[in-house]
Nucleic acid binder design. Structure first.
Lengths: 231, 231
DNA sequence: ATATCTATCTCGCTA
DNA sequence: TAGCGAGGTAGATAT
């Protein structure tokens, strides 16, 4: 990784066009050829960037650019698309390089997949006498998160979200419509389960005859003994 | 902005939990207190981060950590939420700091707004004899991107996306339902227009009697003479 | 302030 | 490889 603090202007031409006027910024060149241009604020998103795989070619400025004060032109070319990033460097303020090697990567806990695993294991959270049919039940329009059977033997489709939004209810509605065309499964009821369910989503779910279930991840995690094995 | 190359491990606790094992990485501390942890690959997204506003407090390691080789503990605390990032630094390999000042920011061209302007100007892309009624036609549930009249004088509602997804079709369906209640407009047909339309979206659109139209931005942009005026 | 929608989204999984 | 869904989505815009 090479880190250059420089006064520069930037032009991007690709899926859109974008321009950065002359200012002092950080230029980060990664081992895979990707380049990130960061300012001293904002968030984790750079002002501009080139995704890998890419190649950086540093050239002398043309006569006009040199006249304007440009000392180097960085041409960053995407290897797969014809996206191009042109960085005009006016002044180097700092320049360091280090080989970081490959990163072991991030270990996550608490995403939808974990919630789904826990609910499948603790299927009676849905109600007394429920049994799991299967997780990720495939249909023509995508996988139903959890398919279960209630105490009376009726099929129940569960859509699971970390945050229960209106489009989650839409998604479950589409699944229910499809599943109810299958005479072997019909009638199929819907349950919308999430850690938090927004009021609008609750209203829409009620309107569609879909039950809502708010899940307590920490509590479910506490019951699961594999949680302690994660770190 | 402070740039530290360090061997470190990282733990995040907030909306989820995440852990980064010991490895060499870049730690970027911005003027607003935000911290980014980058590896030498991936894309513009850091391995882990803390969004501004945040405060960084650097402390001595506890006895156990010191024993394990930790020389500094960075506590990054979000000012608004209780999200927390703990960076255990084992070794500093490089450390530079620069004041970059505020950035003038990015100038963009080629997003959905541009596509909408172009389609409004080139409304016959929809078909022979079409005329524009108006862009951003307001309804109670939001603006319809483009409202037009076909050669036969019937009303057509256009939903425009850069990438045509299933929820774009849902959105257009809601608009059509509403527009068709207006006797002055009804019957209103729907057209789903995008640079790329996903197969599932096409199937759903067909099922709802909505036409699909794939747009070529570069070609439409070529026709438009205002494109050359941008930079 | 909140709600909604876009994104050069990125990332990971699966068919 | 392409498609599809999730994200600590983030970021912008209209309400």
């Amino acid at each position: 990784m090479r880190l250059v603090i420089a006064r520069c202007s930037v032009d991007y031409i690709g899926r859109l066009r974008a321009h950065l006027p002359l200012a002092t910024r950080l230029l980060m060149v990664k081992a895979d050829g990707s380049v990130l241009i960061h300012s001293d604020g904002g968030s984790y998103k750079p002002l501009n960037w080139m995704s890998p795989p890419a190649t950086l070619r540093i050239t002398e400025p043309g006569a006009d650019d040199a006249e304007a004060g440009v000392v180097e032109v960085w041409n960053v070319q995407s290897a797969k698309t014809d996206d191009k990033l042109v960085i005009s460097v006016y002044e180097h303020l700092s320049d360091v390089a280090h080989d970081l090697g490959t990163d072991p990567g991030l270990i996550k806990d608490g995403v939808e997949a974990d919630l789904q695993r826990l609910l499948a294991e603790q299927i009676t959270k849905l109600g007394e006498g429920y049994t799991l049919i299967r997780r990720e039940y495939m249909t023509a329009i995508g996988p139903v998160d959890i398919l279960a059977r209630d105490a009376a033997g009726a099929t129940v489709a569960v859509e699971l979200k970390r945050r229960g939004d209106i489009d989650g209810v839409e998604q479950l509605t589409r699944y229910l419509e499809l599943l109810n065309r299958d005479p072997l499964l019909a009638p199929v009821r819907g349950v919308f389960a999430a850690q938090q369910i927004k009021p609008q989503a609750k209203v829409l779910a009620a309107d569609r005859g879909i039950d809502c279930l708010t899940l307590d991840y920490d509590e479910m995690r506490g019951v699961d003994d594999s949680a302690s094995r994660l770190f």
